[in-house]
Write a protein that binds this DNA or RNA. Structure first.
Length: 808
RNA sequence: GCCGAAGUGGCGGAACUGGCAGACGCGCCGGACUCAAAAUCCGGUUCCCCUCGGGGAGUGUGGGUUCGAUUCCCACCUUCGGCACCA
């Protein structure tokens, strides 16, 4: 009998061996321009060190780790680094609530998480570790910001912004959830007019949309980004306000309905509305702005007020009434619309409430028109009516011709509108990267010179925002000489959104110690784009859009040679542990530390991937962890038996050897191409079951070596130990096994014999059998003959290697 | 409303380009080893009929293509996720 399996001892032993060999570090090739081996950059989204590791981390980093091992052993130079998204609100709020500097708590968390990660045995190149709160890192972020600023890609403007009253800071649009609450804390977000820093993401809206075609991402993630960018094709049309003789542009996707515009609406926040000298109008505007965005959308009845003004329809000169109504949004399109109640539900509702005319201008070619609802179709089958010279044209064509005419008259043009808006990135909080500018009364906004970077975040006493950013307390820090005129200047007291930190961190891993530039272009161009990016869907529209935007800018500025950061993306599922019974012994809920302590790292790594497909949500259960611990023990026992009993040497090509080769083919496909980790593990379990039937027998040694080698990416420690017991050395350096195709061909295969599609018999035949021989063999089968009833088949279907089917 | 994903045993889930549906695991049932229990090992486990051999039904529903459909096509139902007074 072999000795008891001791996970803790084996895992510690091999982790020490790898550390001694510095096995997990990866060097750049000696010639970056002509690399010796293919590279692969495997990256998971960097963790936020606000607490300790959780089961979600366990999944993400184990997926990346398995991919890392697999690619490494397939002869690739694999970069698999780790870093810390250290800035951000939770650390700061925690500091406010419990005292202590956010840096202290954050760094303590990093120490703990790093220890957990090492205990799990992830194959991470710790020599490239970075943290976003390190001045050596954010120095270069400030440097890049200044390059953006020079090109006008970072700018300041006063704009209505989303304000979280709980976190006392501005939020980016992406950080506000659909129900109008803060993505971080859940508080209802307000709208405020504030001076803010923005990045010009809208300049890149079309590129962000187009380049989605070039990346290998799940369709659902691409769809979310398309949705978020929200391209609409239509036209901008110019209406004149008759009383003021002033032009207002509207955006519409339905220029074909222009003759049906029977009134005109301005958003309450539209700049012209403030100039309307009417107490009734201004009272309405005040009421509307008091309402939350959410209430506005939920309102059953359309509300609004007539301004007394009239707009001139550019296509026919018709005068229509101008209303102010809050169903028109200020931040989409131009904040003004032409209202076509006959063909738009919202305009129809408003027209009903205010008894405005409804004029149908698009008719279906066949069928009756229902006057009680707007007619919304817009296709070749629909034709224009009541539209002057354009009558009878198909709707889309009519729309084109209307815009073309207005274009000639200077009253319109084809236009594209995006839902995407510029990224507001300044935050009125302490724990973030300082924005390196100085305000000077004489010179305005003055960038801090490159050689004075980094602008280091100063220590302060109280992190709580009190109507001004907490950094304003650091008066000695704020007061500084203007870099341009030397006069009195004040430093920017707002900090950057943490999404800036995570927009380029994957570049820094390629050259983490560089103190002369953010990175060396040759190194970054060698490793990037990231070949496999792994993370949660929750970052599909924030981080993943910002990082793409950042790369496009860096490419345009000539700092990098690629435009997309993430060539392929794997979106991992959520892990829950709701139903897990908390063990009385451990006394704590399912945390990676606790489950690793109970079951060992190998079992836990296997378990998280065996629970189900890694891109779907899953539930962690103690039963599942026990099951995988059981498998590891079984593997241990079976392989040890093989090591003691089975003859070594070349495989003899028996059934077990064949099974081993089949398993190689299956696992290679599952890990390498399909990311089907659960079925890959199943295949190895199946092989181990086979071996256990006769652990001293023919081919058992080879089969055991194969099983151990294949399970190595999942359970590297036990695999290493067992490999050694089977007589091998340094499994981590062994090439990934290759299925012997010739053997798979050589052996016999099972062929299914059918009559009329029904299974009648099975025969084992040589894989090399010819179709004719196979058919003859099938005819000879008594079971088949019984169903042929002595007759001749009408048709014979042969699927090579699979079946013969006689149709009678 | 628009966009996306998914419906398979008691459960998690397999079935890669149309070819033995239910791999692998959990749970359950039976057995071995134990004074006993735990652990471990062996066998069984979609449902319904059947005396053994076996037969019939079956992958959300209804059609279709095909010798053959979980897989392809059409229509529908349900669930989950994203976006949305977006002009």
């Amino acid at each position: 009998m072999s000795e008891r399996y001791d996970a803790k001892a084996i895992e510690a032993k091999w982790q020490q061996a790898w550390a001694d060999a510095r096995a997990w570090e990866v060097a750049d090739p000696s010639d970056l321009a002509a690399p010796d081996t293919p590279k692969s950059y495997v990256l998971e989204m960097l963790p936020y060190p606000s607490g300790s590791l959780h089961l979600g981390h366990l999944l993400v980093y184990t997926i990346g780790d398995v991919a890392t091992h697999f690619r490494r052993r397939n002869g690739m130079r694999v970069l698999h680094p780790m870093g810390w998204d250290a800035f951000g609100l939770p650390a700061e709020n925690n500091a406010i609530a419990r005292g202590g500097h956010p840096r202290v708590t954050t760094e303590a968390n990093i120490v703990a998480i790093r220890a957990s990660m090492r205990r799990i045995g992830w194959w991470i190149d710790w020599s490239r570790e970075l943290s976003t709160h390190d001045p050596a890192y954010y120095r270069w972020q400030q440097w890049q910001f200044l390059r953006f600023l020079e090109r006008g890609l970072a700018y300041r403007k006063g704009a209505p912004v989303k304000w979280c009253p709980n976190d006392q800071t501005v939020l980016a649009n992406e950080q506000v959830l659909a129900d109008g609450t803060c993505e971080r804390c859940g508080a209802l977000v307000e709208s405020r007019l504030m001076e803010q820093w923005f990045f010009r993401t809208t300049d890149y809206a079309q590129a962000l949309l187009d380049d989605l075609e070039t990346v290998d991402w799940p369709e659902s993630i691409k769809a979310r980004q398309r949705n978020w960018i929200g391209r609409s094709d239509g036209a901008e049309l110019v209406f004149r306000i008759e009383e003021w003789d002033e032009d207002i542009t509207v955006f519409t996707t339905r220029p074909d309905t222009l003759f049906g515009a029977t009134f005109f609406v301005l958003a309450p926040e539209h700049e012209l509305v403030a100039r309307i000298d009417s107490e009734e109008v201004q009272a309405y505007v005040r009421r509307a702005s008091a309402k939350k965005t959410e209430e506005r959308a939920a309102a059953e009845e359309k509300t609004g007020v007539f301004t007394g003004l009239h707009a001139v329809n550019p296509v026919n000169g018709e005068l229509i009434r101008v209303y102010v109504a809050d169903y028109v949004l200020t931040d989409y399109g131009t904040g003004a619309i032409m209202a076509v109640p006959a063909h738009d539900q919202r305009d129809f509702d408003f027209a009903r409430a205010f008894e405005l005319p409804v004029r149908q201008v698009v008719r279906p070619t066949a069928g009756e028109v229902d006057e009680s609802a707007p007619y919304l179709q817009h296709a070749e089958g629909e034709t224009l009516v009541n539209s002057g010279e354009f009558d009878g044209l198909p709707a889309p064509e009519g729309g084109r011709q209307i815009v073309e005419r207005l274009e000639r008259e200077g009253r319109g043009r084809f236009a594209v509108n995006y839902r995407l808006r510029d990224w507001g990135f300044s935050r009125q909080r302490y724990w973030g990267c300082p924005i390196p500018v100085v305000y000077c009364d004489a010179c305005g906004i003055v960038p801090v010179p490159d050689d004075e970077l980094p602008v280091v975040l100063p220590d302060i006493e109280d992190y709580k925002p009190k109507g001004r950013p907490p950094l304003a307390q650091a008066e000695d820090w704020v007061r500084t000489a203007c870099p341009r005129c030397g006069g009195e200047g004040r430093r920017e007291t707002e900090t950057m959104d943490t999404f800036v930190d995570s927009s380029w961190y994957f570049l820094r891993y390629c050259d983490p110690a560089n103190d002369e530039a953010p990175f060396d272009r040759a190194k970054v161009d060698y490793w990037n784009p990231v070949d496999l990016y792994i993370g949660g869907v929750d970052h599909a529209t924030m981080h993943m859009i910002y990082a793409r935007f950042w790369m496009k800018v860096l490419n345009d500025l000539g700092y990098i040679g690629f435009r997309e950061p993430f060539a392929s993306f794997f979106s991992n599922g959520w892990v829950t542990s709701g139903k897990t019974k908390i063990s009385k012994r451990s006394g704590s809920a399912a945390s990676p530390d606790a489950v690793v302590e109970r079951h060992g790292a190998d079992a836990v790594r296997l378990c998280i991937l065996f629970l189900g497909p890694a891109d779907q949500d899953m539930e962690w259960t103690e039963e599942a962890a026990e099951a995988m611990a059981r498998f590891v023990r079984r593997l241990w026992r079976v392989v040890n038996e093989v090591a003691e009993q089975a003859p070594k040497g070349e495989p003899e090509g028996g059934a077990l050897a064949r099974k081993a080769h089949e398993t190689i083919a299956k696992v290679t496909d599952d890990v390498g191409r399909r990311f089907a980790f659960n079925t890959g593990i199943s295949a190895v379990m199946e092989l181990v079951n086979e071996i256990s039937r006769d652990p001293g027998g023919r081919d058992a040694h080879f089969a055991a070596q194969t099983a151990v080698s294949l399970i190595q990416p999942y359970a590297p420690h036990v695999a290493e130990e067992l490999w050694q017991r089977l007589g091998g050395e340094r499994l981590w350096e062994q090439p990934w096994p290759v299925a012997d195709e010739a053997m798979l061909e050589r052996e016999t295969i099972e062929v299914v014999l059918q009559v009329n599609g029904k299974l009648r018999d099975r025969v084992q035949v040589a894989a090399s059998i010819s179709d004719d021989e196979l058919v003859a063999l099938a005819r000879a089968s008594e079971k088949v003959r019984a169903h042929l009833n002595g007759g001749e088949p009408r048709k014979t279907i042969v699927v090579p290697g699979k079946l013969v089917n006689f149709v009678v």
